[in-house]
Design a protein around this nucleic acid. Structure first.
Lengths: 216, 216
DNA sequence: GTCTATATCCGGATAGAC
DNA sequence: GTCTATCCGGATATAGAC
């Protein structure tokens, strides 16, 4: 016993802790997507993470704090792509880059996209401040850029906010509704080939809808 | 007491029952959207419906049966609009009608749309059979019609399934993510004017994306 | 047909052993 | 730092009074 407790000292402090934190967050994300905040039990999260239930309380204090930690993780991923449009760019190039990046994130982190969607659909009880501050700032600055392109006659006269919503909805759809999409396509999972097809299709449809085409 | 129980006989049999069934389903839909299936308690449903808890059990037997009844109600609404494309129509006219009807339903029954979305996002534990049978049949028949239009050179060469997904996602977005959309537009609720704008915008964007325009 | 009372179980959270 | 044992509130469901 002395030996065992002594060995703990030989581990880099924080190693186990970091590993546990990460596996709990990962497990929590999956469970919250499946059952929602209230419907998820700490026991199933702990089971999925391979830890005893009280470890989760030890690391995160409460279910609500854990949920917020998961959302925070997701918002971090999200924020990585917030700086992607520049109004000096050609609109077709800039929109293409934005759409491709959004699709890449959707396929790379489908559970993040799903949990965000569920939170908004169920009334955004935890993300309302984020919507009203960061997201509003982001959306209105991008809308202004799009409006400038329209004013310069570089693209069709569309409502900029509607264009943003269209990009968001059409790209997220493949992550959030993957069960439906895959079922209708009679596939088990997305292949690289499908992802490329989808990527191209969404991009072409939206650019064409804006009266744009990529410079070749 | 005899008088009271006697009066019951003067009510049309089924009247109270029908009213109660309806208000329970209505209340359940709202609660399931807010908290998911597991996170919803029968007590809150009963409170919202203005009935004692055991009445819910009396009418529906179990929480799961109630959930299925709600989903069934939603699928009925959904099926009302399943027959809306005809391949003899002009594609612009037919797609316009389909999009308008989808948007109308989204704004008329936002909770139905939301609950459907949550069910799919969380893995479609109850609607998987529906996806694999009815919805697959519907989608592939519509895809065939779109493909015929393309073959006849009536519209741009797009992936028909992708077009269907684009219509679904862009129209549902305004119902499912209403909290986000309204927050970004700094509005409390959708006005008739906004709905018309959105309707036109989505329609124009998708038709233009398909290389179509409505006959004037 | 309707509601009150209750049985049974399970969840989140904590205290305290190790 | 980690896990076992436990408290307590609240959930579904039912039995039975009215």
């Amino acid at each position: 016993m002395n030996v065992a407790s002594g060995r703990r000292g030989t581990y880099k402090p924080g190693r186990i802790r970091d590993r546990n934190l990460e596996s709990i967050i990962y497990a929590a994300e999956k469970e919250f997507v499946k059952n929602g905040f209230r419907g998820t039990t700490i026991q199933t999260i702990a089971d999925r993470a391979g830890l005893p239930k009280s470890n989760v309380h030890y690391y995160f204090g409460s279910k609500e704090k854990l949920y917020l930690a998961v959302l925070n993780d997701i918002m971090t991923i999200w924020n990585e792509q917030l700086g992607l449009i520049d109004d000096n760019d050609d609109p077709a190039v800039a929109l293409d880059r934005f759409i491709q990046e959004k699709i890449r994130l959707s396929f790379a982190y489908p559970d993040a996209s799903k949990l965000f969607a569920m939170e908004i659909i169920s009334g955004a009880p935890y993300l309302r401040p984020f919507l009203q501050v960061e997201l509003r700032k982001f959306a209105s600055s991008r809308a202004k850029i799009i409006q400038k392109w329209i004013d310069k006659g570089l693209m069709r006269n569309v409502d900029p906010m509607q264009l943003i919503f269209l990009i968001w909805s059409s790209t997220q759809h493949y992550a959030d509704f993957d069960v439906q999409v895959l079922s209708l396509m009679k596939k088990q999972k997305y292949s690289d080939h499908m992802i490329r097809d989808i990527s191209r299709g969404v991009r072409d449809m939206i650019l064409t809808g804006c009266g744009l085409s990529l410079p070749s």
